[in-house]
Amino acid sequence: MRVAKKKRWIPFVVFVVPALLVYTYFIIYSIGNTGYYSLTQWNAISEPKYVGMKYYMDFLKDKDFHMVLRNSLLNVVISLIVQVPAGLIGGYLLYRTRRFYKLYRFLIFIPVVLSASAVALLFTLIFHAEFGPVNALLDWAGLSHLTHSWLSDVKVVFYVVMIPMTYQYIGLYVIIQLSGMQSISEDVIESATIDGASSFRIFWNVVVPMQKGVTMMCSVLIISGCFKAFEHSYIMTWGGPGYSSSFLGVYMYMETFVKGNYGKGSAIAMIILVGTLACTMAVQRIFREEE
């Protein structure tokens, strides 16, 4: 729709300027601030002192930082591998189900609406070494040698912290995929069925390709979610022991708001930002190339 040229600024001012101002000042300008703070030593009370790239240089040889970064990247990779297919499969199962459809949908989506802190606390009980169901289940199945002190064994604690995150968010991706599938026209599925294609074939050859856009969307959501991951790890283990179950988000919070190191915290925030953008672009490229 085209409007007379001289009046073009009116809708712009009315419709866009409020959001644009708020958005620019609080997001774009803030990122600039963060970038600047990351070059200073600052405790938020006194004046910032310029230290240049010191914190970034320190990251290169800081073992804790390496561990936290590795945790975050691993989290992204594992979440993508687990949650994307789970969302697709779960969505498809629901899509093809008529009986109890609503009940299943209701139950699968429940964790999404629970507050993150409730879920995290719940899982501290589930993984309790003495009475938690996980160890009990392993004992019962005769796998006692697999029981662990889940929350303090540094070899596993990081994965343990990821479980409530998966538990909580997987339902969201199932429903998003389901919603995408429901807009696939019935004819496509029907004609495939008449051609004698099995359920699995339909899923693989028809649904998955058509869901590409939705799947990419889910991947982007998962990536940004993983990089900023904070509450589950923070509530369950406080990121510990040490930083072994910390993600970048937890590390940033600890440095900034606990230790009062706002400069270093800003530097970590910049790493989170760069990581998110880089991974998102990489994923988008992968999806484009496939086309």
């Binding site: 729709m1 409007v3 073009r8 809708p11 712009f12 419709f15 866009v16 959001a19 644009l20 958005y23 609080f26 997001i27 300008y29 803030s30 990122i31 601030n33 963060t34 703070y37 938020a44 982007v220 940004s224 990089f227 900023k228 904070f230 970048l248 988000g249 940033m252 919070y253 900034t256 706002y262 915290g265 800003s266 970590i268 925030a269 910049m270 989170i272 930002l273 998110t276 953008l277 998102t280």
Partner: peptide, 27 residues
């Protein structure tokens, strides 16, 4: 409905990718 080009649109959706931590301290 009114905007020409995609620049402004891209500018806005950039916000989607920005993690909260990146703006937390200045906020």
């Amino acid at each position: 409905k009114y905007a020409r080009g995609k620049l402004l649109y891209m500018y806005f959706i950039l916000g989607m990718m920005i993690p909260v931590q990146a703006i937390a301290i200045p906020m």
